[in-house]
């Protein structure tokens, strides 16, 4: 499978990455080279093979839903681009 310029723009939209006109061509070319490599997988018969997500086949560990951390809002917000009254500021969303 290979992708063209329209696909790249759609992926850029999905991933919130702007693809400039001058980069779109080169980007599609590089991604297609990688996809050609990845297409080797299609030749393998994987019927009845269970997908492996965690290499040790481990399940997500659960814990009690109790507070385990202290509130460090000020420390976390000290490194934020913009905050006010304990809230993170972003450009206006609702008119």
């Amino acid at each position: 499978m290979s992708i063209d310029r329209t696909d790249i723009e759609k992926l850029g939209e999905l991933a919130r990455i702007h693809i400039s006109d001058e980069n779109a061509q080169a980007s599609a070319k590089r991604i297609n080279e990688v996809l050609a490599l990845v297409d080797q997988l299609q030749a393998v018969d994987t019927s009845n093979i269970e997908p492996l997500a965690n290499p040790l086949g481990a399940r997500q560990r659960l814990r009690l839903d109790t507070v385990s951390e202290t509130n460090r809002r000020e420390a976390f917000q000290a490194i934020a681009p913009a905050t006010e009254d304990g809230l993170y500021l972003v450009p206006k969303v609702i008119e």
Binding site: M1, I3, D7, I8, L11, G12, L14, A15, I17, S27, I31, V34, L35, V38, L41, Q42, V44, T46, I49, E50, P51, L52, A53, P55
Partner: peptide, 26 residues
């Protein structure tokens, strides 16, 4: 990131991501 978004996008998840996880088991 773009390749990842592609492999996980609707219509390609099984052909890429699921397939790769099956090969991972092999």
């Amino acid at each position: 990131i773009l390749i990842g978004a592609y492999c996980l996008s609707a219509g390609y998840y099984d052909a890429y991501y699921n397939k790769a996880m099956q090969v991972r088991r092999l």
